[in-house]
Amino acid sequence: MTRSTLDTAALAHDLRLAVMRFSRRLRNQRVDTSVTLTHLAALSTLKRHGPMSPGELAAHERVQPPSMTRVVVALEARGLVTRTPHPTDGRQVVIGLTDAAETLLTEEARAREAWLSGRLQSLTPEKRAVLREAAEIMEELAGG
């Protein structure tokens, strides 16, 4: 192995661990811990992509349809999603967000961003500039 390959492998290892730790810390900045991360992910997908069938939601979340059915049932019981008849397929329903879900998602994002903003404020302007560049690079890596 070349020195460059070893350096890249070491960077991949260190970056993977740092991203995992950071992600865990960010996920822990919760407003309502009674809503699971799986439920929040499904709600976020609905917010990002709009109302959809449970099958479409399962595909977006990369889970099996029966698993998503359980998630939808739990979210509906909490008043966070609605089921309406599909406009063209009488066998299907469309899952959409309620106002309570919109509020929850806004509060969750606000809590995480407040925590992160506080952490960023403790850094020097130079380190914040490095993180700004790193965020762009990570976005590029995620897209490719």
Rank of each mutant, 00 (worst) to 15 (best):
M1F: 13
M1H: 13
T2G: 14
T5E: 08
L6I: 11
D7K: 11
T8M: 11
A9R: 12
L11M: 09
A12W: 07
D14A: 14
L15Q: 09
R16M: 12
L17Y: 09
A18L: 14
F22L: 14
F22T: 10
F22E: 06
S23H: 13
R25W: 12
L26P: 03
L26H: 13
R27S: 14
R30M: 10
D32M: 09
S34G: 13
V35F: 00
T36A: 15
T36P: 07
H39N: 04
A41K: 04
A42L: 08
A42R: 05
A42Y: 06
A42K: 12
S44P: 06
S44H: 06
T45P: 01
T45A: 11
L46I: 02
L46E: 01
L46S: 00
R48G: 04
H49S: 08
P51F: 00
M52K: 00
M52W: 01
P54V: 02
A58Y: 02
H60A: 12
E61H: 06
E61P: 00
V63H: 01
Q64P: 02
Q64F: 12
P66N: 04
P66V: 02
T69C: 03
R70I: 04
R70A: 09
V71S: 07
V71G: 01
V72Q: 00
V72Y: 00
L75I: 06
L75P: 02
L75W: 01
E76P: 04
A77Q: 13
R78T: 03
G79L: 06
L80P: 00
V81M: 02
T82N: 06
T82K: 03
R83M: 07
P85A: 13
H86R: 01
T88P: 04
R91S: 14
R91C: 08
V93C: 04
V94Q: 05
V94R: 07
I95P: 00
G96T: 03
T98G: 02
A100L: 13
L105T: 04
L105Q: 10
T106W: 07
E107H: 13
E107R: 15
E108F: 05
E108R: 07
A109K: 15
R110S: 14
A114Y: 12
A114S: 15
A114D: 15
W115G: 02
S117P: 09
G118R: 11
L120N: 09
L120K: 06
L120E: 09
Q121L: 14
Q121S: 14
S122Y: 07
P125E: 10
E126N: 07
E126P: 02
K127R: 13
R128L: 09
A129S: 11
A129T: 11
V130Q: 14
L131S: 03
A134D: 11
A135P: 04
E139N: 05
E140T: 15
E140L: 15
A142K: 10
A142Q: 10
G143W: 06
